[in-house]
Amino acid sequence: MATQTDISDKYGAIARSVTDSGLTACCDPAMRCCDPITKNLYGDLERDGLPEKALLASLGCGNPTALTELKPGEIVLDLGSGGGIDVLLSAKRVGPTGKAYGLDMTDDMLSLARENQRKAGAINVEFLKGEIENIPLPDNSVDVIISNCVINLSADKSRVLREAFRVLRPGGRFAVSDVVVRGEVPDAVRKSMLLWVGCIAGALEESDYQAKLRAAGFESIDLEPTRVYDIEDARVFLTEAGISVDEIAPQVEGKFLSAFIRATKPAAPCCAPGCCTPGAIPGRV
């Protein structure tokens, strides 16, 4: 499993490449394996008006801003915000009375994101430096948490989910895109494929992901597959790595996928005198 330093160094290099050369992240030699996972995730209307380098730096496996309805005035937090594309999209949706935070641990990505914020003229945006295992925001301070294929990079996913639960307000929504594994896969095969799928090696089995969300306190958990990765997509990458694609294909097909993962923090129980009618569900008026 890559260390946080490894991850920070890798994504810092990608941010510098986007800044200096104008290449898309997945044209960068260090990230060539991600294509086609990270491309064509955003529609023309979403791309319109965004700085080019916010799009070039996108390394996700989905579009988390499409996962949940964002309402004017809400506060949104993007875990692992990278070049800032999902933060800027969220800021548009919550409007001037809302706010969108981006959290990233990589100085070069934060620098790129803040430059993209300046170019977009987004005043309801703030990029924070920190780790997703230690979110630098108070308890019960965020309405919606999004993330785009970043939680799978963490070595302590349970802590990430507990932190997400902590900063969400009662009734708050968790809506992320992530890579997951479906069923059992031999360790050697799993490692080879996960190095290709989104260029990571830490995705959870889908039932394990759901169990960790429940353990953190979430409810209404839903995991919706959005793309199942085909072994043929990885043929060149795996062949270059000395792996026989035809031999591992039967153990791989249908087992690696991107998914939308949604959950909710339970609403606070009703406590004010007279706030609940007889027989009402606690937390609802």
Rank of each mutant, 00 (worst) to 15 (best):
E247S: 11
E253Q: 14
Q251M: 11
C270L: 12
A272Y: 07
S258T: 15
S244N: 13
C271H: 14
L257T: 11
C271T: 15
S244T: 02
T264I: 12
I261P: 06
A249F: 01
K265M: 00
I248T: 06
G254V: 02
G254I: 01
C270G: 15
K265G: 08
F256M: 06
S244I: 00
A259Y: 07
I261W: 11
I248F: 10
G274K: 05
E253Y: 10
K255C: 05
Q251W: 04
C271M: 07
P266E: 09
V245C: 10
P266W: 04
E247M: 03
C271F: 12
P273R: 10
I261H: 11
R262L: 14
E240G: 00
P250A: 12
V245D: 05
I261K: 09
C276M: 11
A268S: 12
S258H: 11
T264V: 15
K255W: 08
A263M: 02
S258Y: 07
E253F: 06
A272R: 11
T264S: 15
R262I: 06
F256L: 05
C276E: 14
E247A: 14
E240Q: 08
D246G: 11
P266A: 07
F256Q: 10
A249T: 12
F260D: 15
I248D: 11
C275N: 02
C276A: 15
C270F: 08
G242P: 00
A268C: 03
I243R: 04
P269V: 09
A267Q: 11
A267N: 08
F260G: 13
P273H: 10
R262V: 04
P269M: 04
L238D: 03
S258V: 03
V252R: 09
G242C: 01
A272S: 13
P266Y: 06
V252C: 07
A272L: 10
D246R: 04
S258E: 04
T264L: 08
S244Y: 04
D246P: 01
P269H: 12
E240M: 01
F256Y: 14
P269C: 05
E247P: 00
L257R: 14
E240V: 00
A268R: 06
D246V: 01
S244H: 08
C275P: 00
R262T: 15
L257N: 07
G254C: 03
E247T: 13
T239I: 00
I243T: 11
I248V: 10
I248M: 06
C271I: 09
E253P: 00
E253T: 15
S244C: 05
D246H: 08
